[in-house]
């Protein structure tokens, strides 16, 4: 009788512990974001700033450290995904991505007219008010017979430093292989080894365009459950040329 009570208490203790840790995890308390760690980080940044040496090398080093801190913070915010640059090889188990160009425009190109989807676009398809189209031209190669590719699973995040300003979903695209009976021009089916060029269009507030850093977030499963972190990618876009 005594033994069974001890076993029961041990089991209850384990259950309570697991529930407690799970709650802590959901509240994001298990990451290395404890107060000591944060204070250490802040101290490091302060030390880096206080160096303020006149030598150019030291300045570069300092700005690199700050840049790295920003990228680390952004990475932490996005499930710890490493941040790739546009020239890196961007691929996951399903697709390979090559970003060819990024452009900004107020006029509708060769796309489905997104009039009346989000507003801020007139009947001719040109943006109205302080909005512009950001068009990402990219080539996607299919590595695996992943039955469906949704182009709107490629989102852009706008950051100022490490602060997220906004995220945007794709508005439209020039996807010409749209499937029937689906009405979506975001969906297409590619065969293994097939390569296609796409223009994906985002409607972005003008106020962010000059200041923000653009990141392309790739998650082929969209908002569905399951982590699939190994196939998610975060790419810092080189927008300097496009916006200047």
């Amino acid at each position: 009788m005594k033994n069974s009570k001890v076993v029961k208490r041990i089991l209850l203790f384990i259950v309570a512990l697991v529930i407690l840790f799970s709650t802590a995890k959901s509240l994001d308390l298990l990451e290395d974001n404890n107060i000591l760690e944060q204070m250490k980080k802040e101290q490091n940044v302060e030390e880096t700033n206080s160096l303020n040496a006149p030598e150019e090398e030291t300045e570069n080093l300092s700005s690199n450290i700050v840049d790295n801190d920003i990228l680390e913070a952004i990475s932490c915010e996005n499930e710890g995904l490493p941040i790739l640059s546009q020239v890196d090889q961007i691929k996951n188990d399903y697709y390979g991505y090559v970003i060819n160009s990024i452009s900004v425009s107020k006029e509708l190109g060769d796309f489905h007219n997104p009039y009346d989807i989000l507003g801020n676009v007139d009947k001719e398809g040109n943006t109205v008010g302080a909005y512009s189209y950001i068009i990402i031209n990219l080539t996607i190669e299919c590595y695996k017979e992943f039955p469906e590719l949704y182009l709107n699973t490629l989102r852009i995040y706008l950051y100022k430093g490490a602060d997220l300003l906004r995220g945007y979903e794709a508005l439209t695209s020039n996807n010409t292989v749209s499937m029937t009976p689906s009405k979506s021009d975001m969906r297409c089916i590619m065969k293994k080894g097939e390569e296609k060029d796409f223009n994906i269009v985002y409607l972005v507030d003008d106020e962010y365009i000059e200041d923000a850093d653009f990141y392309l977030y790739i998650n082929n499963l969209g908002a569905s459950y399951g982590h699939d972190t190994e196939n998610k990618r975060l790419v810092k876009l080189d927008t300097k040329e496009a916006f200047n």
Binding site: P147, E148, S182, K183, S184, R187, L221, A223, S224
Partner: peptide, 13 residues
């Protein structure tokens, strides 16, 4: 249901 407006049931579901 149209898959364009359903984001939780995908081809892996």
């Amino acid at each position: 249901p149209d898959n364009a407006c359903n984001t939780t049931i995908t081809c892996r579901t």
